[in-house]
Amino acid sequence: MNAFAIALIECLLKAVQIYFIAGLIFAIVFSLLGVQRTDPGARGIAPFFRLIIIPGVSIFWPLFALRLVQGKQHPIEKTAHRQAAKFSR
C-alpha cells in the first residue's frame, strides 16, 4: 500500500476525530447547562431531547460556542417576505 496515502489518511482521520471528540465534550456540557441560554425552547429536564441534540452539536459546536460567548440566541430566519417586511417599516 502507498505509505504516503496511509500517513495522509491517518492524519486527516485523527484531525476529524479530535474535532469530533472536542465537539462531543462540548455537546454534553452544552446540552446539560448551556442550551437554554441560546434557545428558550429548551425548557425543563427533557433528558431525551438533550440526548438527541448531542450528535448534531458535536458537529456544529463552534456555532454554539460562539453564541454562548457572544450571549446571543438563535437567529430569526430570512425569507423574501420577511426581508421585504423588515425594510418596509
Binding site: D39, I52, I53, G56, S58, H74, K78
Partner: peptide
Amino acid sequence: ATSHDFWLVNLT
C-alpha cells in the same frame, strides 16, 4: 443528526 426541530430553529 440535525433532523430534530431544534435544528430548524437554531439554523433557521
